[in-house]
Design a protein around this nucleic acid. Structure first.
Length: 917
RNA sequence: GCGGGGGUUGCCGAGCGGCCAAAGGCGCCGGACUCAAGAUCCGGUCCCUUAGUGGGUUCGCAGGUUCAAAUCCUGCCCCCCGCACCA
């Protein structure tokens, strides 16, 4: 079966008829979105997995009578594309290879030195691949972000004007990793990989003084300021004297640049060797003690300020150096820790001096002191260190004895090759996510929403609480300029917050020429009207040169589609994008337009392993589609996992299984659809019931986005039902017809091309994609139980085949003694079934047996609900079938009329079987 | 550290008080079909026992609640993910 060919055929038909182009009508609507992906590469199967979780639901909802909108846009805002383009310009081979591995012809690679070329090239690729996959997307609403798309940019600008009006954006300062040579912020994508993820840490700079000379000491443990015995400098390093106003600061020479950036300026007076400082003294600002300045080779002149306060009682490095420098000196204990004596550092490190061990011990001691330690001296004596630290820090800061200072925990190289420093940006724009009133509204929004799976609500609420102000604009990146400060470009997460609203009118704004709109003339009033209903249509029309009727239509269309019904993304977006998305919706839109649900899925592994290029298990969507065809891939993606934080697993082996199952289904279909007889048997009732139950069950699985279960039901359970039905002699043409029709319908959201093909083979007009979900008929509870009885007998016979050798002459099947049925029923209703049963003189004869049976029933309820007559008559009617399996005649005997040991042992739902040899 | 999610039989993965030795898939083993391979179909896949409906030991570890626990409670061990200015 050529899945690729079938898919192409139907994709063309869908496109020609435009069936996924959704416009408002009388039906209820359903609006689902997959967050626009960042288009610096091609889609792989993990993208497809997340997209399909929207797609499957969209197709299902369409069948439930909803007018479904599934649009798709592309994200290009931010730095990675810009820096990748730069690398191409610089001739970076690694970057070239990446492009070539995406399928870019080698001779075209050069074109990618222009960032805008990426934005033209990759969205096209994504669209092709998503279409090939069978995505039921309304492509008229496709768009890219950034100022390369003026219409979208206008929309983002409008949003920021609104936020500013509401006071939700403000200016502030912000520490960043900074390249002094290129004079720019160094994000992860601007560094060699090994430096990724390192960010500035806030520390306290304590100002030790000698007159107007300041010795700035960096510390993460301000509480130890009480235990300082001396300061350390590196005698072999170069230091500098910097004048700032009346003060003179001493900083190691290699840190001068960072220091000046963070202090906002100063004048380097002179430089000199660190050894010149040795022997001087400085005053501890907190205790007033004067402490000597001593040399230590442990001092890293490239970290912090190159001046360090020494706390030998609590810091292993200081202790090791202190012992050497001041053998007779006495460390000063300021923290008391359970399990340690008067000088914890001494105890823990003895006379160790090697750097590695000291580092390990430092970690341990710092942790012990923080969590278990209690302050021994100072204002907060008696308080736990974990509480005192913050208080001491803020006291020091407030009294001017210390300042905030940012340091990099490890050195970071810029891609240009220079070492970076920490800079403080002073005119950074922030979104005021810390605003409690704003947070409160977001929580209210969450309270009205539905989550898939429900547990993620907790994660989301936590993220809302933890969110601080967010630096929302950058420089030198792609995006939309901040309308009130055009040097800044709105950062990538910050322009992706309410764009789902843009989809509702994108079909107009992305094709303005068709509607006579000039997007360059659009003003905020236009968006005010469309999205907020503000303003007089006639005036808005005049101001924006958009016909009044069109304006009204757009407003209507927005209100038709909004709010968003469903948004599924990878779990990585939970704590950032999805939270921002909620914040901005509550800020801009009225409550009635807040999002209705959010869904997430885990990472996608391939064959049980994390997908990575180096492992060779990296599969692009295009590769997968070419290798296996869209429907098998879709089935395998559906089967890969359920909603939630757990990882999904795309199993290449399973794609083959999926294809085989589909082929199996197809060949059964070809053989049986339209064939069969009029004759109606009991097994037909069973099959009908199974079909009906499955319709209901699969519907609820789709609603819960449990697609893996859907595949289980449709591809495995259903086929085993069909096999059983055929084995039992089922051939009713109506039942067969219904089986195939309902299952094709139910499977169509996941394997749409395949199902279209079968639908057509059935002689049906129109697309299965536009059909309604099948109606579930009556479910007969007993018929399944009856059939289960036959299965039980068959399994037992199979066992006996192995054990009873010789030629079988006859098989007798015994129902249980009738008192056992009564006992079974009574055991469910009555407190003391034994007593009740014993009232019957016939039963009383069985005495002991009754007690034993009832006791076992109470400990393990069982026995079904069928009566003896029902069991016997059903088994009788199935006796031909059973006999053909047994290979000899079969008789069904009422348990009450036999004293055979097999009859005595029979129980309800568990007939006794006797083989006559 | 803070926060979140988990540990189920060879693997993946359901189950979340009793019909649970535990669905389904994959893998593996046997059989049928075939010249053969593949595909397909049938059967098996914790151990023991047995003319089946029986027993034993299992669901990270250790306790506890209950007539009854993979499922509830307590403690412990282990694994994964997020912690930001970045897509």
């Amino acid at each position: 079966m050529d899945f690729g060919k079938i898919a192409r055929k139907w994709r063309e038909k869908w496109e020609r008829s435009g069936i996924f182009e959704a416009d408002p009508d009388e039906r209820p609507k359903f609006f689902a979105t997959f967050p626009f992906p960042y288009v610096n590469g091609v889609p792989h199967i993990a993208h497809a997995f997340t997209f399909l979780r929207n797609e499957f639901l969209a197709r299902y909802k369409r069948m439930r009578g909803f007018n479904v909108l599934l649009p798709q846009g592309w994200h290009a805002t931010g730095g990675p594309i810009v820096s990748a383009a730069l690398r191409i310009r610089e001739g970076d081979e690694k970057q070239k290879k990446i492009l070539i591995s995406c399928g870019v012809p080698e001779e075209e690679v050069e074109k990618f030195s222009d960032p805008s070329y990426w934005v033209r090239y990759f969205p096209r690729r994504w669209r092709e691949d998503f279409s090939s996959l069978g995505g039921s997307v309304d492509w008229r609403r496709e768009f890219v972000t950034t100022s390369l798309n003026p219409a979208f940019s206008k929309f983002v600008e409008w949003q920021y004007l609104k936020l500013r009006e509401k006071g939700l954006v403000k200016k502030g300062t912000h520490p960043v990793v900074w390249c002094p040579k290129e004079r720019k912020v160094v994000g992860d994508h601007d560094r060699p990989d090994e430096y990724a993820g390192i960010v500035p840490e806030e520390s306290i700079l304590v100002k030790f003084r000698q007159g107007n000379i300041v010795f700035p000491c960096i510390t993460f443990r301000p509480e130890t300021v009480y235990g300082v015995t001396n300061l350390w400098v590196n005698g072999k390093a170069e230091y500098a004297e910097i004048r700032i106003g009346e003060e003179v600061w001493i900083v190691s020479r290699s840190r001068v640049e960072e220091f000046l950036l963070q202090k906002g300026g100063g004048e380097v007076v002179k430089t000199f060797p660190g050894s010149d400082l040795v022997g001087l003294a400085a005053v501890n600002p907190e205790t007033g003690d004067s402490v000597p300045i001593l040399p230590s080779e442990f001092v890293d002149p490239d970290f912090g300020t190159g001046v360090v306060m020494s706390v030998p009682a609590h810091a292993p490095f200081d202790y090791a150096a202190f012992r050497k420098a001041v053998p007779e000196g006495e460390p000063v204990q300021v923290i008391e820790v359970e399990g340690y004596g008067g000088c914890p550092a001494a105890e823990i490190c003895g006379d160790v001096t090697d750097r590695e061990t000291l580092e390990r011990l430092t970690k341990k001691l710092y942790a012990d002191e923080f969590y278990k330690g209690v302050m021994k001296v100072g204002k907060y004596a008696g308080m736990r260190v974990s509480e005192a630290r913050e208080k001491i820090a803020s006291d020091l800061l407030n009294s001017g004895k210390a300042e905030r200072y940012f340091v990099l925990p490890e050195r970071v190289k810029c891609r240009c090759g220079s070492w970076t420093v920490v800079n403080i940006l002073r005119d950074q724009w922030f979104l005021r996510y810390s605003d409690p009133a704003w947070k409160k509204e977001v929580h209210r929004c969450i309270g009205r929403m539905r989550f898939y799976p429900p547990e993620i609500e907790k994660n989301l609420r936590k993220a809302v609480d933890w969110l601080r102000d967010w630096a929302c604009a950058h420089k030198h990146e792609l995006g939309t300029p901040l309308p009130f400060d055009r040097d800044w470009v709105i950062e990538s997460l910050s322009d992706s917050t309410i764009y789902m609203a843009y989809y509702t009118v994108a079909k107009y704004l992305e094709h303005p020429e068709k509607y006579g709109i000039d997007v360059n003339r659009l003003k905020p009033s236009f968006f005010d009207y469309i999205f907020l209903g503000k303003g007089d249509p006639a005036e808005v029309s005049a101001e924006n040169s958009v016909p009044e009727d069109l304006l009204k239509e757009m407003r209507k269309e927005f209100l038709y589609w909004y709010p968003l019904d469903f948004r599924n993304s990878g779990k990585d977006l939970l704590q950032n994008h999805l939270v921002f998305f909620l914040f901005h919706h509550v800020a801009i839109f009225p409550e009635s337009l807040w999002p209705r649900s959010v869904s997430v899925n885990g990472w996608v592994k391939v064959g049980g392993e994390k997908m990575s290029k180096s492992k060779g298990n990296f599969i692009t969507l295009r590769e997968a589609l070419e290798r296996w065809g869209p429907d098998p891939v879709r089935v395998a993606e559906a089967y890969a996992g359920s909603p939630g934080l757990d990882d999904a697993n795309f199993d290449p082996e399973f794609v083959k299984t999926a294809a085989k199952r589909l082929v199996w289904f197809f060949s059964r279909f070809s053989e049986l659809y339209g064939s069969g007889t009029e004759e109606r048997k009991e097994i037909d009732d069973w099959m009908e019931t199974r079909i009906n139950k499955r319709i209901t069950e699969v519907a609820s699985l789709y609603e819960k986005t449990e697609y893996r279960e859907v595949i289980d039901r449709l591809l495995f359970d259903a086929s085993s039902d069909l096999s059983w039905y055929l084995k039992r002699g089922g051939r009713n043409s109506e039942v067969l017809r219904r089986f195939f029709e309902t299952h094709v319908l139910m499977l169509s959201p996941i394997a749409p091309h395949f199902c279209e093909e079968l639908w057509e083979s059935m002689g049906k007009a129109g697309f299965v994609s536009l059909e309604s979900w099948p109606e579930a008929g009556e479910v007969d509870g007993k018929v399944e139980e009856k059939e289960e009885l036959v299965r039980t007998v068959l399994e037992d016979l199979r066992e006996l085949k192995k054990l009873v050798k010789g030629e079988w002459k006859e098989v007798r099947i015994y129902t249980a003694k009738s008192w056992k049925y009564r006992a079974r029923d009574l055991a469910r209703k009555v407190e003391d079934p034994v007593k009740e049963l014993m009232k019957d003189s016939e039963i009383r004869k069985q005495g002991k047996e009754v007690v034993r049976f009832v006791a076992s029933l109470l400990s393990a309820p069982r026995g079904g609900t069928l009566s003896e007559e029902e069991e016997r008559s059903y088994l009788t009617s199935a006796s031909d079938f059973i006999s053909s399996e047994a290979g000899c005649p079969v008789s069904v005997v009422r348990g009450d009329v036999s004293e055979s040991p097999k009859a005595l042992r029979a129980e309800p739902a568990k007939p006794g079987i006797e083989v006559i040899i």
